[in-house]
Design a protein around this nucleic acid. Structure first.
Lengths: 122, 122
DNA sequence: ATATGAACATTATGTTCATAC
DNA sequence: GTATGAACATAATGTTCATAT
């Protein structure tokens, strides 16, 4: 399946952050892109537009988020959407899964540090 | 480039372990596959044959490892190879790079834990 | 079964193009 | 410039096939 046996995928990582943002209220695509780039700037991680929108669309398709078109004053046609939290139970289960995935990933990485960079003393 | 902006690639991770194994003496493909699967069994990570051989071939091509055909008693034709450490300086530099990549990856993952799973208290 | 590797397929991700305000 | 998205391209990884001992 899409089930990664190695480390967590970027897509899952981004989806987690989006869910968290939706939990706080609502989010929209362009803004979360800007926010996440800012948030990870110090670590040199700069998620692409494409990944962010794909993550958003997946969450929507899977029912974790719901989309609401918003209206701006003075406009008729607009392509602005707000994303709100969908099924809370589903979301909770999803977060638990991702949590386990992150924990496993950290364990793999720390093992690599231990195995490959520990000082050998005699 | 192949430069990942997100988390360390499986390929780099495996290559690190192979270099480490070569540092201890020598290694060969099938054995390291078995060993790594055993080593990561508890974390549910089961590297594939394909990834292991590709990692090995990359290390060879990049000069981190050298290949030596080995002879077994009673055989003429054989496709067995032993990999030994190549340029030590190059290897050291490579390990430093991977170390930084792992550290950055752990930082990203731990940030996700902090950002998305910390208890909010009032 | 051990052992190595290529060929093929699919996923994950990144880059460019299109559209609209 | 903000904002959304598809189309296209490539990179990373996994599965199957081939070949030999």
């Amino acid at each position: 399946m899409g089930q990664s046996t190695f480390i967590i995928r970027q897509r899952s990582y981004l989806k987690l952050y989006m869910i968290h943002e939706a939990e706080k209220g609502y989010l929209y695509g362009h803004q979360i892109l800007i926010d996440l780039r800012e948030h990870f700037n110090d670590l040199g991680y700069k998620p692409t537009k494409s990944e962010v929108y794909k993550s958003l669309h997946e969450l929507l398709k899977e029912g974790y988020l719901m989309r609401v078109p918003i209206t701006k004053e003075g406009t008729d046609l607009q392509t602005l959407y707000v994303y709100k939290l969908g099924d809370q139970e589903k979301v909770k289960a999803y977060k638990d899964t991702v949590k386990a995935d992150i924990d496993r990933s950290i364990a793999l990485l720390e093992r690599a540090l231990k195995d490959n960079y520990s000082q050998k003393r005699g």
